[in-house]
Amino acid sequence: MRSFFLPLLVVAWKDIRLELRTRELVTSILVFALLAVIIFTFAFDPTPERVALVMPGTVWVAFTFAGTLGFNRSFMLEKDRGSLEGLLLCPVTRDVIYLGKLLGVFLFMSLVELLLLPVFSALLNFPLLDLRLIAVALLATLGFAGVGTLFSAIAVNTRSREIMLPILLLPVAVPVVIAAVEATGALLEGASFGEVRRWWQLLLAYDVVFLVVSAFLFGFALEE
């Protein structure tokens, strides 16, 4: 157990320390997601009824696109500074590297979401802070980041890599987006956690399936 979790935390801690020094990733995701929602409000003129209608979708589109940028960045740094080789030389299996990278990205994404939900609530005059909503958001973020980490390791090696990741990731992440938007909408309309059971169960199933499959496939995406 120790030989599995300790290296995993070390890989994640490396990314966290880098982030604590530069604050590049969290800042850029945060500003991008904020901008995306602001642009959306210009597109639909935020009257209270309309906000209630389009809010869940808007927030998740913003998080999805912002997250895509973030995942791209996480592996671009490894690649451009040649630290990927160092990571590969670590005496741990590939799935540990995968889970470590995933943990880092997941923490950054979740942090951005937790910071932005109150900001969105204030900007759009709409209560978004809700523990059940946060639970759904974390489940969705985990699945999204799980596939995103695998795909960014692939996309970073291709030509036109900035555009490649969203093209790969968004179709595969369709179930996450649907489940997150529907659950958010239903919870904000006052549904109980049990009533949106199917959505968080879908997210849970998605997380389990894709985390296991991605951890298994990650080694093939890394070899040079």
């Binding site: 695998l150 692939i154 179709p171 595969v172 649907i178 879908l202 199933a205 998605y206 399936v209």
Partner: peptide, 20 residues
């Protein structure tokens, strides 16, 4: 890697869209 992930994804997409 993609050929494996994509095919696994298709039934999940289908169910999520049916419920949606």
């Amino acid at each position: 890697v993609l050929g494996t992930i994509s095919f696994i994804d298709v039934p999940i997409v289908y169910f999520s869209v049916v419920w949606w």
